[in-house]
Amino acid sequence: MDFKSPEFRVKVGLAEMLKGGVIMDVTNASQAKVAEDAGAAAVMALERVPADIRAEGGVARMAAIDKIAEIMQTVSIPVMAKCRIGHPAEALVLQALGVDFIDESEVLTPADEENHVWKLDFKVPFVCGCRNLGEALRRIGEGAAMMRTKGEAGSGNIVEAVRHLRAVRGEIRRLGTLDPAELVPAAKELQAPLELVEYVAREGKLPVPNFAAGGVATPADAALCMMLGAESVFVGSGIFKSEDPSRRAKAIVHAVTHWQDPVALLEASRGLEGAMRGLDMAKLTPEEMLSRRGW
C-alpha cells in the first residue's frame, strides 16, 4: 500500500481534521442542525438510528438521497453517510452525491456476506468498523482511511466498545514485542496483510486514525473511549434517543475536548435528563449483535 500517494494522503487528511471531535448520527436536516450547533465535527446521515433499526427490524439500507442532500445543504461541517457492507453501488451513489466520507457499516444489513467494498478504487474516503486489529488491517488493506471500533450500535451499552478498543490497543502493543520473523505467523494469525502488520509493529499505531463507536450514551462514556486511545468518538442513538438531545450533544462534545480534565467532565455531566435506555449484552443473541456483521 502506498501511504504516500496524494489520494491516500487527502483521504487520511480529512480523518486527521476530525480528531478530538464528535461525529453524530442524524436522520434529517433539523437533527443535523442541532448537532452542528452543539459542536459536532461532522454528522453521519442514516435512515434510522441504530436503536430504531434494532427495534423495528427489516432491511436497513443507505439513507434516502434527498434526505442526505438536504443535510448537506443545511450544515457546513463534513457530512458522512452509510452504505451497506459489500455494496459498492450504494457507495458509488454516495460518492457521486459528494458526501465527504462513507461509512461501510455493520449497522445496515450487509449486501455481501464475504466481501467488503474495494475502497482503494474510490476518491471519497471510507471509515469501517473493527472489533480487533486483524479486522482493522483487512479494512485498511482494502483502502479504508479511518477505522472505528464497532462497539454495539444502538445498545446504549459501552461494554463492547471498551472490549474492541482494548483488543486493538493490546494487539498493537503485542506486535511491538515481536521480531521480524515472528511477524509472519502474527500476520497469519491476524489474517492481515504482512506489510500492514510490519507497519503497526514499527510505528506502534494504525496507519490511519482510530475512532470509537457503538454504545456511547453519556459524556463519561465518551471520555472513557478517549482514555482507551480513541482519537474521536461517534455517537449514534445516544443523542437523539435521549430526552435532551441538544444539551446531551453539547455535553458529549465538551467531554471529548476536555477528557483529561475531571472537573470539566463533572461540569459536562451535570443537569442532563434521562440517557437512552440501554441493553444488556447477555440478553442479545449472537444474531442480534450488529458488531458480528463484517469479517
Binding site: M17, K19, V253, T257
Partner: peptide
C-alpha cells in the same frame, strides 16, 4: 486545521 465551526463553539 479542523472544523472552524466546532472550534468556535468550543
Amino acid at each position: 486545521g479542523g472544523e472552524s465551526t466546532t472550534i468556535l463553539k468550543l
